[in-house]
């Protein structure tokens, strides 16, 4: 552990890049999927139909009270079994850690995005809904054309902040041996016994990206403050 060998990083770059690409894919898919399903959950929670609202609330509270690592484990074992149940196959299909992780993250993040979207919807004044209804717009049209566009504009900074957290959390997929950026770096580190170099490099990349995104969030917040 004396001198740093930066050459190790250079040789491992192509492999690291594959891991990094997976991290990005996981983050973006989980964010988009999470926002989509989170919006549906939020609409369910705010709906006047009590069983629907209760079911959505139950799901959200369950997901938010269980550590992510556990959820990842569960889904790793459960998803093949569920798919088997659906397709009626003889043996659980081999889904693969990478794909399982994507499903898991979408379902997990949906719970967090649900609460953000719910607050966003509630930030739009009731009068806007009344005005839309008074013009004859129905529930779905009012949501899609009047409420959600304003809600998303209001919550853009918070959505991005949650995505930064998600970006960092994706590294937890190492528990099911999916090869993300951290996983790839860990494997190289073990193989070449270059732990310091690899983990330092990974940390710097995460730091750079998070700083960049936080900067973006701050800019959006400032712009939102001007628009209002």
């Amino acid at each position: 552990m004396t001198d740093l060998d930066l050459g190790v990083i250079a040789t491992a770059l192509p492999y690291l890049w594959k891991g990094f690409a997976y991290t990005l894919e996981l983050t973006v898919t989980a964010a988009l999927g999470g926002i989509f399903f989170g919006t549906l959950l939020a609409l369910a929670r705010l709906s006047g139909t009590r069983p629907l609202a209760l079911a959505a609330a139950g799901y959200v509270n369950l997901m938010r009270s269980v550590p992510l690592v556990l959820v990842i484990f569960w889904f790793y074992f459960l998803v093949p079994l569920i798919l088997q149940g659906i397709t009626g196959a003889e043996r659980p299909p081999a889904v693969g850690a990478e794909r399982t992780a994507i499903v898991t993250f979408i379902l997990f993040e949906a719970a967090y995005f649900c609460e953000i979207v719910r607050a966003g919807i509630q930030s739009v004044p009731r009068g806007q809904v009344h005005a839309a209804h008074a013009l004859g717009l129905g529930y779905a049209q009012t949501m899609r054309l009047v409420v959600l566009p304003q809600a998303f504009r209001n919550m853009l900074p918070v959505l991005l902040t949650q995505t930064i957290v998600l970006f960092q959390d994706t590294s937890l997929v190492y528990v099911i041996s999916a090869t993300d950026f951290v996983g790839a770096a860990a494997k190289v580190a073990q193989r070449d016994s270059r732990l310091v170099e690899m983990y330092l490099f990974v940390a710097l990349v995460y730091l750079a990206i998070c700083l960049l995104l936080s900067q973006l969030v701050r800019r959006l917040q400032r712009r939102a403050a001007v628009v209002r």
């Binding site: 004044p125 009068g127 806007q128 009344h130 005005a131 839309a132 009047v146 566009p149 304003q150 504009r153």
Partner: peptide, 9 residues
């Protein structure tokens, strides 16, 4: 309405 309720977006 009292507060106009135009759609700001």
């Amino acid at each position: 309405f009292q507060h106009f309720e135009l759609f700001p977006h």
